[in-house]
Every structure is written in C-alpha cells, then in structure tokens.
Nucleic acid binder design. Structure first.
Lengths: 192, 192
DNA sequence: CGCCGTTTTGATTTCATCTTAGAATCTACT
DNA sequence: AGTAGATTCTAAGATGAAATCAAAACGGCG
C-alpha cells in the first residue's frame, strides 16, 4: 500500500463535501464547513484539491459515476433480452436506490444536475450529459414498447422522469424499504 | 395614488430578484446583481427591503401566490362538477403555464421551493406549504377517480408530479405553444 | 418658485470566504 | 532511531458580499 494516507483523507473530504453540497447547494457550501466535516483544517484541503471548483467537480463526477454503475449493473442483471419497459423499470429502481444510498454520495447528484454553471471547466458536465443520454435511450425503447406515450418528445419525458425521481430526496433519510416503495410508486405512475 | 413611486421600484426590484434567484439560486445571488437588474444602487435596496432574506421571502410568496391564483382560476373555470381526473389535468396545465410565464416570477419558485432553509422567519414557508397541500387534495381526488394509482401514498405521488413539472424549467424560455405541448406530455404520462 | 417628506446615492464598516505560503508534524523506510 | 518526503497546520492576504448611514437628489404641493 504505497499510496494510502492521502487517499483516505481524500475520501473523507469527498464524502464531507458531498454531504454539505447536497444540503446547501453549490454556492452555499463553504470550504470551512467541508473541512470541519472531514476533521481537517481549512488550509489542508488545498493539498488534495486545487480549488473549490475542482473539489465540487470531482464530487459530481463521483456521484454520477456511482449512479451510472448501479443502473448498468441492474440492467445487466436483467439481461439484454428484456423488454424496454422492464429495462426502464429496473433503471428507475436502481437510480432511486443510488440516490438514497447512505453514503451521501448519491444525494449530491441531485442538487447539482441542474445548476452546473461553474463546473464548465471540469469534466463533470460531460459525465452528467452522458448519463442523461443513457436515460434517453431507455425512454425511447420504452416508448417503442408502448410502455410510454410514443408521440411525446423523448427528451421531455426523460426530464420528467428524472425530475420526479429527483423530487424524491429530501432532508429525511429514507430506509431501503421506503425507497423500494417509492420506486414502486414511480414505476406505477410512469409505466401504465 | 398616494403610494406609487416607491411601489414601482419595489416591483422592479422584485422582478430583478426573481430573475437572478431563478438563475443563480439563493446563495449565489448577490444583491449588487439584483440592484443592477433593477437599475438601482446597492444601498437603495435597503430602503425597500430590510434584508436579503426579507427580499427573498417576498419573491417566494409572490411567485407561489401567482401560481396559486392561476391554478384556482383554471379550476373554477372548469366548474366544481368536473371529475377529479379533469381537475388535476387542468391544474397541471395551469401550474406549468405559471411556471413558464415571461415575467420570471414563476421560474423563481421552482429554484427555491426546496432549499428554503433561510426562509424560516418569513411567512413564505406557510404559503408554500398551503399550495402543496392543495395539490395533495387534487391528487387524492384523482386517486379516487382511478385516474391515478389508488394504493400509492398521496404525498409521494404529489411530490413526483410537482417534481416532474419543476424539471420542466430550464435556461431556455419556452413559447406558450411549447408549454402547452409539455403540459400534454405530463398529463399523458401521469393520467393514464 | 421654494419647501418638506420621500427616495436614492455613494462611501464605509464588518465579516465570511477562497486561496496561498511557510512552518510544523507525521509516516514510512533504511 | 534517524532522516527525507509526504501531509497537515497556522497565519495572513485578497476579494467580494451584506448591511449602515449621512448627505444629496428628487418630486409633488403650497
């Protein structure tokens, strides 16, 4: 283990940042707050991250990556022979689970996805966009299946679904059972 | 018209504030920016509003009031004899129209509604809560109609619908025709 | 016109924030 | 154990934001 000490605090910083970020939003997040959460002194952050933007950028890509992995895994488990309707249903459940994961990593995505003005520099935007596009594909397949209204704009429908799921996270932490129940509701609502 | 001059600039400030808030979020909004948008000097704001929080609070209550009025009007136009399904459908269309109104008043609600930590003091929270409750009633009626899944938690469904509509507003201003089309999509998606 | 309350200005204070830099401490390796 | 390098701390600088206030500008009314 040649590279450890730095990596562990780095992790701690990212988790703290994700938490604060999810709670306060981008502009509302102060680095002192993040440092406190990580048990560090303000100045020490800069050994690990070049700037606030860089840190937040990494939080975002991390969180998106996380959700992406979960969704991909769920889809692979379901096999590629599944109907578009079933695939979308599985993706919804996986996305919701990722969003409500204890680690706080998930919750961060939610806050940011729509206010990423200052993240232009980092590669975060690309990640978010790619993830959104994969959802477009899922929606389109479900539309062909007649699982979703076929005459509606795919991108609009995709945004509605993602927006509905986004509205699911709040101050209160949901139990896995509750998340499952919410997923049932979303699926029942969206897939007739 | 004994009370005019101040009121007109007051209006201007509120509009500017709504725009900036909608674009930058609460913490990201600087009062200098708001003042610029209103054609005023920073210090002049404090003649009209006691603090940033007070200003924000008024923007929110204003915007919620606006949406509330639109929805109520739409419901009254439809008559109280209408089915729960039809009433919900009308409310969705009205809410979306309010959200995308040119005046920028609508867009402001959307950004803030869920990050109102600093609004505790003002009466804004009460307004938001009341509006949300009226939506619960609409959803519940539609559930009895079998327009919506009846076994799902009303509050969850309500949040999903509001969240989906919230996801509808973005940087680009939508034309009334586009808003109508989006409304059609939402209604088709939500009411089977 | 010239006055008085209303409205706006512009300078100033206070404070939080991001960022930097050098000193201090710790860790891993010989 | 001792040392070099990696990690963290402390302190300070720079910027920008919220809030305050005396003084100036405005605007209707006698």
């Amino acid at each position: 283990m040649t590279l450890t000490k730095a990596d562990r605090t780095r992790r701690r910083i990212l988790e703290s940042a994700a938490t604060v970020f999810a709670a306060q939003g981008y502009a509302g997040t102060s680095l002192r707050h993040v440092a406190d959460g990580a048990g560090l002194q303000l100045g020490s952050l800069y050994f690990h991250f070049a700037s606030k933007d860089a840190l937040l950028g990494e939080v975002v890509t991390d969180a998106v990556q996380f959700a992406e992995d979960r969704v991909r895994a769920a889809l692979e488990a379901r096999g590629s022979g599944a109907t578009g309707r079933d695939r979308l249903s599985a993706a919804i459940r996986a996305h919701l689970q990722a969003l409500h994961e204890r680690s706080e990593r998930g919750a961060a995505v939610v806050r940011i996805v729509d206010l990423p003005r200052e993240l232009a520099a980092t590669g975060a935007r690309r990640h978010v966009r790619r993830y959104a596009q994969s959802w477009s594909a899922l929606v389109e397949a479900a539309q062909r299946d007649a699982g979703l209204p076929a005459d509606a704009d795919t991108v609009v429908v995709r945004n509605l679904i993602l927006g509905a799921m986004r509205a699911t996270v709040g101050p209160r932490q949901l139990s896995p059972a509750q998340v499952d129940s919410v997923a049932d509701t979303v699926i029942a609502l969206v897939l007739r």
